[in-house]
């Protein structure tokens, strides 16, 4: 399976990449929403999962989600916001725009794995 990790912080991308790699995903990185869309346009196979920061330059995570949801080719992608935006209203906005799950930073590795398990993206018993 493939996962796209979209965050303008390289450190955060590293953390997320480490977690999804443990779960047997091949990870692709993007530094903002636009870069992620450009990469997706060139990918023959759509990744199963995208982990998406909210506040990024060029195109933010919410705009990225809106774009993905409007594109039938990307319909199967599971979208998880991973952000410091933690107001109730922001979570509601992201879910309404089409995000499937929402992880608030800071998160522990265990918490991220549990969220992915909720989405059926973790083989059962694989939370180390």
């Amino acid at each position: 399976m493939r996962a796209m990790v979209i965050d303008d912080s390289r450190a955060m991308r590293m953390i997320l990449k480490r977690i999804v790699t443990k779960l047997n995903f091949d990870a692709v990185e993007a530094g903002d929403g636009q870069e992620a869309l450009d990469l997706l346009a060139d990918m023959p196979e759509v990744p199963e999962l995208a982990l998406i920061d909210w506040n990024m330059p060029n195109m933010n995570g919410l705009e990225f989600v809106t774009n993905v949801r409007a594109d039938p080719r990307l319909r199967e992608m599971t979208l998880v916001m991973v952000t410091t935006e933690s107001e109730q209203s922001q979570i509601v906005r992201a879910l309404a725009a089409g995000a499937h799950e929402y992880v608030i930073k800071p998160f522990t590795e265990g918490a991220m794995i549990e969220k992915l398990a909720l989405l059926g993206l973790v083989p059962t018993g694989a939370n180390s």
Binding site: S9, R10, N55, T83, T84, E85, S86, E87, Q90
Partner: peptide, 30 residues
């Protein structure tokens, strides 16, 4: 570069959580 990136992310994480406790209509810079 690593050092700058991580310092930035630490400020971002704390800042984002502080913002959530402020009155609605607050915006966070990069």
């Amino acid at each position: 570069e690593d050092l700058s990136d991580v310092l930035g992310e630490l400020a971002n994480i704390v800042g984002g959580n502080v913002k959530a406790m402020l009155p609605p209509g607050a915006f966070l810079s990069l």
